[in-house]
């Protein structure tokens, strides 16, 4: 028992708890206790000037929302959008975009469905702006979702809108042929 006592009593934790700041470790040095300091207003990180207005605000030079996406939309972009949409948007908007998510059922204000005429016709930049700055009861998601992912989510919202409002003519010819063969099954 003496040995155990000697072995444990001698244990110091200096190497475990080194006098350095790791993320979220508090400090006594600043009054607010944060070792990670808030950015001074106007700070621009190297390579983050973000001067591409259409990309970072969704607005063109004329101040109107851009109808186009700032980069080519590929299948990977839409799939990334689906992935991010399911994390950040489905709690309220639900996986179809009708606005009956779990948080809404718990009492959050009901968002409009994506499948109404007004939202089908808004430019892509408008949807980007709502994610960036919020709208109505919806808070902004600028801290949680990076700009590139916001655009990806917008492409997925477009895909969702199309999925609920497609006509037979939107289907490519070969898929249409397969649909008419297998559709009845």
């Amino acid at each position: 028992m003496l040995l155990v006592a000697a072995a444990t009593a001698a244990c110091r934790q200096d190497m475990h708890d080194q006098p350095k700041y790791i993320p979220l470790r508090p400090t006594d040095f600043f009054a607010d206790g944060r070792s990670a300091r808030p950015l001074i207003e106007g700070t621009v990180a190297r390579g983050h000037l973000d001067d591409d207005a259409a990309y970072y605000t969704g607005k063109g030079p004329d101040g109107k929302f851009t109808p186009e996406f700032p980069f080519p939309v590929t299948k990977e972009v839409v799939e990334r959008g689906q992935d991010r949409f399911n994390i950040y948007c489905t709690p309220c908007h639900d996986s179809l975009g009708t606005g009956n998510g779990r948080i809404v059922r718990r009492g959050f204000r009901h968002p409009p469905s994506y499948h109404i005429d007004r939202l089908r016709q808004v430019p892509a930049g408008y949807l980007y702006d709502v994610i960036t700055n919020g709208f109505g009861a919806m808070p902004d998601y600028s801290a949680q979702i990076q700009p590139v992912d916001r655009w990806a989510i917008v492409t997925y919202i477009r895909a969702l809108q199309l999925s609920q409002n497609a006509s037979i003519n939107d289907i490519p010819a070969d898929a249409k042929a397969r649909l008419s063969q297998e559709g009845g099954q």
């Binding site: 948080i103 009861a137 801290a143």
Partner: peptide, 11 residues
């Protein structure tokens, strides 16, 4: 805290 308030501003 902002993330908490996303929902708890209303709920």
């Amino acid at each position: 805290t902002k993330t908490c308030m996303n929902c708890h501003s209303q709920i």
